[in-house]
């Protein structure tokens, strides 16, 4: 393994950690708003780290560009859908969790 390999392994592991944490939050957090919070972290940062790690391994600018494009699309869709779900929940009067 060379330097870039170590770097992409690190990025992939960090991304996987974010997905693990996001999934845990989705399963364990108490209400829809906090769950969305956990989920968007996994989608945005976790996928970003994984895309970076894979782009380092791709060895071609074209493939790396496509991967980054996928990430940008997921950012756009993820953020909008999280907003829509939260908005729908508020419109239905689902209260925020309080300790």
């Amino acid at each position: 393994m060379t330097g870039p390999d170590y770097l992409s392994a690190l990025l992939l592991l960090a991304g996987a950690l974010f997905f693990l944490a996001g999934t845990l939050g989705l399963l364990r957090f108490p209400d829809v708003y906090t769950r969305l919070h956990a989920l968007t972290k996994a989608d945005n940062v976790g996928l970003g780290l994984i895309v970076l790690g894979l782009a380092l391994q791709s060895g071609s600018w074209l493939v790396a560009g496509k991967l980054v494009l996928i990430w940008l699309l997921v950012l756009l869709a993820g953020a909008s859908v999280a907003h829509l779900i939260a908005r729908g929940a508020r419109q239905r009067g689902i209260p925020e969790w309080r300790r």
């Binding site: 699309l73 756009l76 869709a77 909008s80 907003h83 829509l84 908005r87 419109q91």
Partner: peptide, 18 residues
Amino acid sequence: EAPAGAVLDMLLRLLLPV
């Protein structure tokens, strides 16, 4: 039934051409 809202409209404006 309900207005789609600014975010969904914006998303579609960006997404449909893509």
